[in-house]
Nucleic acid binder design. Structure first.
Lengths: 226, 226
DNA sequence: TCAAAAGTGTTAAGTTTACACCCATGA
DNA sequence: TCATGGGTGTAAACTTAACACTTTTGA
């Protein structure tokens, strides 16, 4: 253990709170959990937990996520730290908010029940406590902002997806309709969206080409321009 | 005092670190302080301090800034929380990084000496310890990003400024030259940049019109579009 | 008289938006 | 046979980028 030089200074609990987005047929949803601790025992809250001594902030967020959803493969990014004095009536807690995107298909109902979690449509959010609504808004803005210049929205979809599904995700997140021809033109200009030779027959009678994302190529091209 | 529900959970020191930008004749600078505590006693570090029990994170950052620079009127914004385990060999410290912009003209040398601070050109950064270089890069990116769609760069300049000065600030921050006519055209399209009837004779022989920023009008126009 | 920054419009290039019809299929 | 989502190109509107000369004045 290292020597402690700062022992006169106060210390605080440090938590992470994860705003986790999922997507399902034109609805953008957030994962909530029923709180199992006072205060506000039983109320809905984003998934969170205290940062432990053997983990970084990112690791704490990742642990909370994987532990309670069983999903290892997700997108995770820090939003901001929240540290108002009375933000948590249970004690002074500094909370670092994260936002995460996952593909609901990978999410086993076993975990949903085990941790009494539920998906809530972002158009039907309940009353939130503490500063959770601020985190929520920040997360939504970040998501809306970032899908414009990064492919993170793909984390909400299966490996292979149709243009229709992809467009619908964008429309749902942005809350506006997008011209089909313009959307497809833009996507097709990005070489890391590759059309497979598979046809999806679930989403339409005619069948739609399935695309996948070539993340290796994506990163090569991005790094090239730095 | 509120009841403590979380007493089984670990606690940590929480600090703020402020990346403070100043501008001087075509050079973008950052304010550093000599550390007066182990470890790395004497080395250069951004201005920082521990969050006290009676203050929020923002207040802690603001306190550190005003206390050590004597300036009350500055731009302050949270960057991100840093919490890697070994980031500070002096003990586990979660640090919330901030970035700030101030007008060096308001900065009295008295404070500079009192706190053994110094301005360093961002093109001549010294070796930085902990994760201070990460904070630095994040701050510079944030600044470069935000000046494109907000008027925060004005916090680096006096109340009244010439178009030439304004353009130079942008060029310095972005590290590229900007076409003079296009720049002036864009600025003049924003009604909250108002030309005063004063002429600055310091910056050129001919003299240049002084402009000021009408922040009331700016906020009115911004809110109107929400 | 000349060096140094201020000031001023137009055109071309590029990007974004708007828009309508045929196709393949399962019900 | 028809309702449903899949698939395709072009022209107009708008935005951004490129570009050069005259003005004023202090040294």
């Amino acid at each position: 253990m290292s020597i402690k030089y700062y022992s006169n200074e106060p210390t605080y609990h440090v938590a992470v709170d994860c705003i986790i987005f999922g997507y399902d047929e034109g609805r953008l949803q957030v994962l909530f959990q029923h709180r199992h601790i006072e205060p506000y025992n039983g109320e809905l809250t984003p998934l969170g937990g205290f940062v432990q001594e053997d983990e970084t902030l990112d690791q704490a967020a990742y642990r909370v996520l994987t532990e309670r959803t069983g999903i290892w493969d997700l997108y995770l990014e820090q939003l901001e730290a929240f540290g108002d004095i009375g933000r948590d009536p249970g004690g002074r807690v500094i909370s670092v908010a994260y936002f995460a995107l996952l593909n609901k298909d990978k999410y086993d109902n076993f975990y949903l029940r085990k941790y009494s979690c539920q998906w809530i449509d972002i158009t039907k959010l309940p009353t939130l406590y503490f500063d959770h609504m601020k985190m929520m808004k920040k997360a939504i803005h970040r998501l809306q902002d970032k899908i414009g210049f990064t492919p993170i929205a793909l984390n909400l979809l299966p490996e292979e997806f149709t243009m229709g599904q992809l467009q619908k995700v964008y429309e749902t997140i942005l809350g506006e309709t997008i011209d089909k021809r313009n959307f497809r033109k833009r996507v097709n200009e990005m070489p890391y969206f590759v059309k497979t030779d598979k046809i999806d027959r679930k989403s339409s009678k005619r069948g739609a080409a399935l695309y996948k994302f070539d993340s290796k190529l994506y990163h090569e091209l991005k790094n090239f321009h730095l």
